[in-house]
Amino acid sequence: MDSAPTELGLPSVGPRPEVAAEPARYVLDRGIGYSLWVFDLGLACCAVELVAAATAHEDFRPLGVGPFEPDGGRADVMVVAGTVTDKLAPAIRRLYDRLPEPTHVISFGSCANSGGPYWDSYCVTKGVDQIVPVDVYVPGCPPRPEALVQGILKLQEKIEGSVRS
């Protein structure tokens, strides 16, 4: 692992929507934002709340959230739930790079936001946003399962807004 800082940049939807006409972008907004396939990267205790959110509803489709994709090869949004350690950080970066564009990241819980209660530890990455660009931060230790749903709704609002501009 080289020690030069990685230029992360802001996540983008891809080149095509930016040059598309307004009606096409409107459709692409809705298409992306309301069919989010979720890759739940559960690392620690927040993973339990993540699973509770994933299994709480019989059908997530009215919300525009697709299946909670276990494979991670086809997901739109990666939810990082739990403590990120320095040893695991390169693996998380590889998982993020493996996901097809556009990829969004939700940081779930204090540990993923900023290191949380383990901010002073010798081996904890202080926030997953040091490795991957994060779109939505959900606070809590652990956050309620409903807070994850609210975070996803907030992400949908952001997707709606970002592509349009």
């Binding site: 692992m1 350690t85 320095d86 040893k87 901010w119 002073d120 530890s121 010798y122 081996c123 202080k126």
Partner: peptide, 19 residues
């Protein structure tokens, strides 16, 4: 458990938490 480039022995009492 520690990454390859880690220096020192963290659970010793004299190990200082830099953060």
């Amino acid at each position: 458990l520690l990454p390859a480039e880690f220096e020192g022995h963290p659970l010793r009492k004299e190990f200082v938490l830099a953060a």
